[in-house]
C-alpha cells in the first residue's frame, strides 16, 4: 500500500508542469524514503531528477517499494481537475495498474477522485556521480528565467561564464549578439532570496542550448531561488530547491567545440 498526502496540492501541479514539456513518460519510484524520478528528454541531451522526501508530505506510507509508470501529460490533465487550494492524496496498491488521485477542497465540501492508468516504461537509469562543482551560483529563479527567455530570442546557444565577479550569459545570432552579466550581491543587498551568490574554485565557461534551459525554467514557480552548478566539460546542473520537501534538478550536456 502506498499513500502520500500533500496539503499544498498545488505543489504537485507545479512539479508536473515543470517536467511534462521535457519528459513525456517516466517512472516515479516510491519507497520508504519518499518519491524519486529520473528521466531523460527524448533526444537524450538532458536529464531531470526529482526528489521528494517522505518528511515533506503530511502523511506518507509506503509498505513496499513500487514504480509508477506515468504518462506525464495525462497526469497533468488529471491534476488540472484539482483546485489550487486542494489537498492532494496519491494512492496505489503494491502491484498497481492505476494511480488514484484524491482531491479535497479546504472546507471538505468537494471531494473528487480520479484513476490514472499506469504504463510499463523501460528506462535506462543513469548513475549521477556526487560531484564537487568548480562553480556554484545561487540566484533568483525569476532572474534566470528572464535571462534565458531574453537570450533565446537572439540565438540558440548560450555561453555561460562564471568568474568571482559575476556570471555572464552570452548569445549570438543572425541579428547580432548580446550579453547579460549578473554580479555577486554584496552582503548588505536586501533579501536573501534576491541575492546572487557565487562559490568558485576556478572560472568556468560552457556552452548550452537555450531551448533546454528554457524547458528547465518551467520550474520557476516552485521556488524563489535557482542554483547552477558547473565544472569544465561536464553537464550543468540547474537545481530548484522545493521548500521543505526536496528538489528538482536538471542536467544538461554541454555543447563542445569539435
Amino acid at each position: 500500500m502506498f499513500e502520500a498526502r500533500l496539503t499544498e496540492g498545488s505543489l504537485l501541479k507545479k512539479i508536473i508542469e515543470a517536467i511534462k514539456d521535457l519528459v513525456q513518460e517516466a517512472n516515479v519510484d516510491c519507497s520508504e524514503e519518499g518519491l524519486t524520478m529520473q528521466a531523460m528528454d527524448a533526444s537524450h541531451v538532458s536529464l531531470c531528477s526529482l526528489n521528494m522526501r517522505h518528511g515533506g508530505f503530511d502523511h506518507y506510507r509506503c509498505d513496499r517499494s513500487i514504480s509508477l509508470g506515468l504518462n506525464l501529460a495525462n497526469l497533468g490533465k488529471i491534476l488540472k481537475c484539482a483546485g489550487n487550494d486542494d489537498v492532494v492524496t496519491l494512492k496505489a496498491e503494491d502491484e498497481p495498474d492505476t494511480l488514484t488521485l484524491m482531491f479535497e477542497s479546504p472546507n471538505q465540501e468537494r471531494i473528487s477522485d480520479f484513476e490514472l492508468k499506469l504504463m510499463d516504461i523501460e528506462t535506462e537509469h543513469l548513475g549521477i556521480p556526487n560531484e564537487e562543482y568548480k562553480c556554484t551560483i545561487s540566484m533568483p529563479s525569476g532572474e534566470f528565467q528572464r535571462i534565458v527567455r531574453d537570450l533565446a530570442v537572439i540565438g540558440e546557444t548560450c555561453i555561460i561564464t562564471c568568474t568571482k565577479e559575476g556570471v555572464k550569459f552570452s548569445v549570438s545570432g543572425d541579428l547580432g549578439n548580446g550579453n547579460v552579466t549578473v554580479r555577486q550581491s554584496s552582503a548588505a543587498d536586501g533579501d536573501e532570496k534576491d541575492q546572487v551568490k557565487i562559490q568558485m574554485e576556478e572560472p568556468v565557461t560552457l556552452n548550452f542550448a537555450l531551448r533546454y534551459l528554457g524547458f528547465f525554467t518551467k520550474a520557476t514557480p516552485l521556488g524563489s531561488t535557482v542554483k547552477l552548478h558547473m565544472s569544465p566539460d561536464v553537464p550543468i546542473v540547474v537545481e530548484y530547491p522545493i521548500d521543505g520537501i526536496g528538489s528538482i534538478s536538471y542536467f544538461l550536456a554541454p555543447k563542445i567545440d569539435e
Partner: peptide, 14 residues
Amino acid sequence: RNKQRKIMVFFSSC
C-alpha cells in the same frame, strides 16, 4: 563548430 553532447556520455548506466 559546437556539437551538442548526449547526456549518457557523462553518466554511466546503472
